[in-house]
Amino acid sequence: MLELSLFFILALFTLGGSITMVVSFQPLFSAFGFLIAMLGLAGLFALLNNQFLALAQIMVSVGAVVILSMLTIMTVNAQVQNLPKEPHKFIWLILSSFLVAPITVLIYTQLNTLPATLKGAETITAKVIGNALFTDWVFPFEIVSILLLTAMVGAIVIGRKHLLDTKACS
Protein backbone atom coordinates (compact mmCIF):
# COMPACT_ATOMS: atom_id res chain seq x y z
CA MET A 1 0.00 0.00 0.00
CA LEU A 2 2.80 2.32 0.86
CA GLU A 3 4.53 1.40 -2.35
CA LEU A 4 1.44 2.09 -4.38
CA SER A 5 0.89 5.53 -2.86
CA LEU A 6 4.57 6.29 -3.26
CA PHE A 7 4.31 5.25 -6.91
CA PHE A 8 1.34 7.50 -7.53
CA ILE A 9 3.02 10.48 -5.90
CA LEU A 10 6.18 9.94 -7.91
CA ALA A 11 4.24 9.29 -11.12
CA LEU A 12 2.31 12.49 -10.53
CA PHE A 13 5.55 14.39 -10.16
CA THR A 14 7.02 12.86 -13.25
CA LEU A 15 3.98 13.40 -15.46
CA GLY A 16 3.38 16.87 -14.09
CA GLY A 17 7.01 17.80 -14.67
CA SER A 18 6.93 16.47 -18.24
CA ILE A 19 3.68 18.21 -19.11
CA THR A 20 5.01 21.48 -17.69
CA MET A 21 8.12 20.97 -19.76
CA VAL A 22 6.19 20.47 -23.01
CA VAL A 23 3.69 23.25 -22.45
CA SER A 24 5.85 26.11 -21.05
CA PHE A 25 6.67 29.09 -23.20
CA GLN A 26 9.87 29.97 -21.39
CA PRO A 27 12.65 27.41 -21.81
CA LEU A 28 13.71 27.83 -18.23
CA PHE A 29 10.26 26.74 -17.02
CA SER A 30 10.56 23.75 -19.29
CA ALA A 31 13.91 22.97 -17.76
CA PHE A 32 12.37 23.08 -14.30
CA GLY A 33 9.65 20.72 -15.39
CA PHE A 34 12.30 18.46 -16.85
CA LEU A 35 14.23 18.58 -13.58
CA ILE A 36 11.17 17.53 -11.61
CA ALA A 37 10.44 14.73 -14.08
CA MET A 38 13.99 13.46 -13.79
CA LEU A 39 13.85 13.52 -10.01
CA GLY A 40 10.57 11.65 -10.12
CA LEU A 41 12.18 9.07 -12.35
CA ALA A 42 15.03 8.68 -9.89
CA GLY A 43 12.45 8.05 -7.19
CA LEU A 44 10.75 5.47 -9.35
CA PHE A 45 14.07 3.73 -9.87
CA ALA A 46 14.49 3.60 -6.13
CA LEU A 47 10.95 2.24 -5.82
CA LEU A 48 11.97 -0.52 -8.20
CA ASN A 49 14.67 -1.55 -5.76
CA ASN A 50 17.25 -0.23 -8.21
CA GLN A 51 19.63 1.54 -5.97
CA PHE A 52 22.42 2.12 -8.43
CA LEU A 53 20.20 3.39 -11.25
CA ALA A 54 18.50 5.85 -8.91
CA LEU A 55 21.85 7.24 -7.93
CA ALA A 56 23.08 7.32 -11.49
CA GLN A 57 19.90 9.06 -12.58
CA ILE A 58 20.31 11.76 -9.97
CA MET A 59 23.96 12.24 -10.74
CA VAL A 60 23.84 12.09 -14.53
CA SER A 61 20.43 13.25 -15.58
CA VAL A 62 19.71 15.70 -12.82
CA GLY A 63 23.21 16.66 -11.83
CA ALA A 64 24.72 16.86 -15.26
CA VAL A 65 22.16 16.98 -18.09
CA VAL A 66 19.49 19.18 -16.55
CA ILE A 67 21.97 21.53 -14.92
CA LEU A 68 23.89 21.78 -18.17
CA SER A 69 20.66 22.54 -20.01
CA MET A 70 19.77 25.28 -17.57
CA LEU A 71 23.27 26.67 -17.82
CA THR A 72 22.96 26.73 -21.61
CA ILE A 73 19.57 28.36 -21.49
CA MET A 74 20.91 31.03 -19.26
CA THR A 75 24.04 31.43 -21.36
CA VAL A 76 21.99 31.88 -24.51
CA ASN A 77 19.76 34.19 -22.52
CA ALA A 78 17.21 34.42 -25.28
CA GLN A 79 14.92 37.44 -25.02
CA VAL A 80 11.21 37.03 -25.52
CA GLN A 81 11.41 38.45 -29.03
CA ASN A 82 13.99 35.83 -29.89
CA LEU A 83 11.81 32.97 -28.72
CA PRO A 84 9.60 31.39 -31.37
CA LYS A 85 6.09 32.78 -31.46
CA GLU A 86 3.81 29.83 -31.34
CA PRO A 87 0.35 31.32 -31.75
CA HIS A 88 -1.41 27.99 -32.23
CA LYS A 89 0.63 26.08 -29.69
CA PHE A 90 -2.29 24.46 -27.92
CA ILE A 91 -4.07 23.54 -31.14
CA TRP A 92 -0.86 21.87 -32.25
CA LEU A 93 -0.53 20.11 -28.90
CA ILE A 94 -4.09 18.76 -29.00
CA LEU A 95 -3.87 17.69 -32.63
CA SER A 96 -0.57 15.91 -32.08
CA SER A 97 -2.01 14.27 -28.98
CA PHE A 98 -4.70 12.78 -31.18
CA LEU A 99 -2.00 11.58 -33.54
CA VAL A 100 0.06 10.07 -30.75
CA ALA A 101 -2.82 8.56 -28.77
CA PRO A 102 -3.13 5.33 -30.77
CA ILE A 103 0.62 4.89 -30.59
CA THR A 104 0.44 5.22 -26.80
CA VAL A 105 -2.33 2.69 -26.60
CA LEU A 106 -0.44 0.37 -28.85
CA ILE A 107 2.75 0.66 -26.82
CA TYR A 108 0.87 0.08 -23.60
CA THR A 109 -1.02 -2.93 -24.83
CA GLN A 110 2.10 -4.46 -26.25
CA LEU A 111 4.10 -3.84 -23.08
CA ASN A 112 1.36 -5.56 -21.11
CA THR A 113 2.12 -8.78 -22.89
CA LEU A 114 5.45 -8.83 -21.02
CA PRO A 115 5.69 -10.57 -17.61
CA ALA A 116 4.26 -8.12 -15.13
CA THR A 117 5.03 -9.54 -11.69
CA LEU A 118 7.54 -7.45 -9.84
CA LYS A 119 9.84 -9.91 -8.07
CA GLY A 120 11.64 -7.30 -6.02
CA ALA A 121 13.68 -9.92 -4.25
CA GLU A 122 17.10 -8.51 -4.95
CA THR A 123 18.23 -4.96 -4.64
CA ILE A 124 20.30 -4.04 -7.61
CA THR A 125 23.39 -2.55 -6.15
CA ALA A 126 26.55 -1.22 -7.71
CA LYS A 127 28.10 -4.61 -7.15
CA VAL A 128 25.51 -6.46 -9.16
CA ILE A 129 25.64 -3.94 -11.97
CA GLY A 130 29.43 -3.89 -11.88
CA ASN A 131 29.55 -7.66 -12.15
CA ALA A 132 27.27 -7.63 -15.16
CA LEU A 133 28.93 -4.61 -16.71
CA PHE A 134 32.43 -5.98 -16.60
CA THR A 135 31.61 -9.53 -17.58
CA ASP A 136 28.84 -9.79 -20.19
CA TRP A 137 28.60 -6.11 -21.12
CA VAL A 138 32.24 -5.13 -21.50
CA PHE A 139 32.02 -4.54 -25.21
CA PRO A 140 28.89 -2.30 -25.15
CA PHE A 141 30.42 -0.49 -22.21
CA GLU A 142 33.55 0.31 -24.21
CA ILE A 143 31.44 1.33 -27.19
CA VAL A 144 29.49 3.73 -25.00
CA SER A 145 32.73 5.19 -23.69
CA ILE A 146 33.87 5.82 -27.26
CA LEU A 147 30.45 7.33 -28.00
CA LEU A 148 30.84 9.72 -25.11
CA LEU A 149 34.29 10.70 -26.30
CA THR A 150 33.01 11.26 -29.81
CA ALA A 151 30.10 13.33 -28.53
CA MET A 152 32.51 15.48 -26.55
CA VAL A 153 34.74 16.07 -29.58
CA GLY A 154 31.69 16.75 -31.72
CA ALA A 155 30.28 19.24 -29.27
CA ILE A 156 33.58 21.11 -29.18
CA VAL A 157 33.80 21.19 -32.97
CA ILE A 158 30.21 22.38 -33.39
CA GLY A 159 30.70 25.04 -30.76
CA ARG A 160 33.76 26.57 -32.43
CA LYS A 161 33.39 30.05 -33.79
CA HIS A 162 34.65 29.60 -37.33
CA LEU A 163 31.67 27.42 -38.19
CA LEU A 164 29.62 30.59 -38.05
CA ASP A 165 30.62 31.38 -41.59
CA THR A 166 28.90 28.32 -42.97
CA LYS A 167 25.24 28.90 -43.33
CA ALA A 168 23.49 25.96 -41.72
CA CYS A 169 20.08 27.51 -41.83
CA SER A 170 18.52 30.27 -43.82
Partner: peptide
Protein backbone atom coordinates in the same frame (compact mmCIF):
# COMPACT_ATOMS: atom_id res chain seq x y z
CA UNK B 1 5.88 10.25 -40.70
CA UNK B 2 3.81 10.28 -37.55
CA UNK B 3 0.56 10.56 -39.47
CA UNK B 4 1.49 7.36 -41.26
CA UNK B 5 2.47 5.59 -38.09
CA UNK B 6 -0.65 6.82 -36.40
CA UNK B 7 -2.91 5.53 -39.14
CA UNK B 8 -1.13 2.20 -39.04
CA UNK B 9 -1.62 2.09 -35.32
CA UNK B 10 -5.34 2.78 -35.69
CA UNK B 11 -5.50 0.01 -38.24
CA UNK B 12 -3.68 -2.39 -35.99
CA UNK B 13 -5.79 -1.49 -33.00
Amino acid sequence: ILVGISLMSYYML
